[in-house]
Amino acid sequence: MAKPMRIRAKLKGDHVEAKILIQHDMETGLRKGSDGAKIPAHFIKTLTVKYEDKVVLDTVMGIAVSKDPFLSFKFKGGEKGGKLTVTWVDNSGDTRTDTTAVK
């Protein structure tokens, strides 16, 4: 059950600053619950950010990334009102896509 992300993208001079907050447990598979059994691994494997049709960020994530990850990056060539689309896929095959307009 993928939960929504919070995406903010702001034009700052010649670049767009994007901030993405993701809701995900990011379980490493190495932790044990109170019953002593391992908690199964559940983490985001890839995350892609597209500006309009162009990929501006392509990432490979793993178990070293924290729970509820926060990602911030800048890219050139964006304009106000342009569409930023973020998609992640996790190891259980679950996926989520959210979109925002550059402000």
């Binding site: 901030k19 907050l21 809701q23 729970k67 509820d68 926060f70 911030s72």
Partner: peptide, 10 residues
């Protein structure tokens, strides 16, 4: 820095 990405919102 963290204030921008506070998962408490969720």
């Amino acid at each position: 820095f963290l204030e921008d990405g506070n998962p408490a919102e969720f």
